[in-house]
Structure formats: structure tokens, C-alpha cells
Simulated scan of single mutants.
Amino acid sequence: MAENEVLITEEGLEKIESEIEYLKTVRRKEVAERIKVALGYGDLSENSEYDEAKNEQAQVEERIAKLEYMARNAKVVKGNELNDQIVNVGSAVTVVDEDTQEEDTYYIVGSAEADPLEGKISNESPIGAGLMGMGIGDVADIDVPQGKVRLKVLKISIA
């Protein structure tokens, strides 16, 4: 993988493109209107509304630039490139913790679309990296911030 490539699923790329469109068509206009209103308050040296609006404008532009970079450098992992025998970006992996016997399903995604609250973990995270390349029945000993976990792969499917 090239150093600047961003691994991403088709769904993740669609979300990025949708957010770019929203930021460009909606948020830019909202922030520009806030700046216009704040300019009407007069003296800019003590105008906190103007300062806040300009800071928000900078944040929106920074987010747009970051998302456009990710979209430009995206390496989309397509479903037809995946299989249900090996864990890869785009896989849904059901594992069991061999110590607690607790089962979890993780969706392995590129770092750009990771969202642990949705069960989407990055292929660069400790658990994601530890599961990459594993097959059904394989056991991974993974160092996590809380110590070590021993996960056995029960099922792999294409997310």
C-alpha cells in the first residue's frame, strides 16, 4: 500500500463524499451568513461573534481539505475482492474471547471510517491489526491497552 493511500470501503467513501457535499453547500453558507451578521456589529477588535464565526469557518475549511485528501487518496476495498476465509478490510469478524467466553462482532474498516460505537474498528487498531489475515479457527494473542486478549475467529463474512 502506498504511504498516502487511505483504505476505505465503498460505503465509507460514499459517506466522505456526502459530507464534503454537505460542508460545501450548507455549512459554508451558514458560516458565511454568521460572519456577515457579525460584521454588522461594528468594531472587529472586540467582536467575539466575528471571531467565533471566523474560527468556525477555518474548521469547516480544514475538514473539507482533510476529507478531499482522503477521497483523492482512497483505495476502495470492493466486496468482490474479499472472501469469507481471511480477515481483511471490509470483513465482519465474529470472535470469542477465550478467557471470558464473550462473543463480539467487529467490522474491519480503514482508519478513516472507524467508529467503535458502531463496532467499526480500524485495521490499524490493536484488535483490527491483530485479526488481519486470520482465518476461521485461528487464535490471536493481541496486546491492548488493558493488557492481552486472546481472540478466536468464529466467523468471517463480507460486511
Rank of each mutant, 00 (worst) to 15 (best):
M1W: 14
E3T: 13
E3I: 07
V6W: 02
V6F: 11
L7Q: 15
L7D: 05
L7P: 12
I8T: 11
T9R: 15
G12M: 05
G12L: 05
G12A: 06
L13K: 10
L13A: 07
I16M: 12
I16P: 05
I16N: 10
Y22D: 05
Y22C: 01
Y22N: 08
L23T: 00
K24C: 04
V26W: 06
R27Y: 03
R28F: 07
E30R: 00
A32W: 03
R34T: 06
I35N: 13
G40L: 06
G40T: 07
G42F: 06
D43P: 05
E46G: 06
E49F: 08
E49Y: 03
D51Q: 12
D51K: 13
A53T: 09
K54W: 03
E56R: 03
Q57S: 12
Q59W: 00
Q59P: 00
V60W: 01
V60N: 03
V60H: 05
V60Y: 00
V60G: 00
E61C: 09
R63H: 02
L67S: 05
E68A: 08
E68G: 03
E68W: 13
Y69S: 13
R72E: 14
R72A: 14
A74G: 13
K75F: 13
V76M: 06
L82W: 02
N83S: 09
D84S: 12
Q85P: 12
I86Y: 06
I86S: 11
V87S: 13
V87M: 10
S91H: 07
S91T: 12
T94K: 08
V95M: 11
V95N: 14
V95W: 08
V96P: 10
V96T: 15
D97I: 00
E98Y: 01
T100H: 03
Q101K: 07
E102R: 13
E102P: 14
D104R: 04
D104L: 07
T105V: 04
Y106N: 09
Y107D: 04
Y107R: 06
S111G: 08
A112W: 00
D115P: 01
D115A: 15
P116N: 11
L117A: 04
L117R: 13
E118A: 11
G119P: 11
I121D: 04
S125H: 15
I127Q: 04
G128P: 10
G128I: 01
A129V: 06
G130S: 04
L131V: 04
L131Q: 01
M132W: 08
M132A: 07
M134F: 01
M134A: 12
G135V: 14
D138Y: 05
D143R: 02
Q146S: 14
K152M: 09
K152A: 05
K152P: 13
K152F: 07
K155W: 14
K155T: 15
K155H: 14
I156N: 02
S157Q: 11
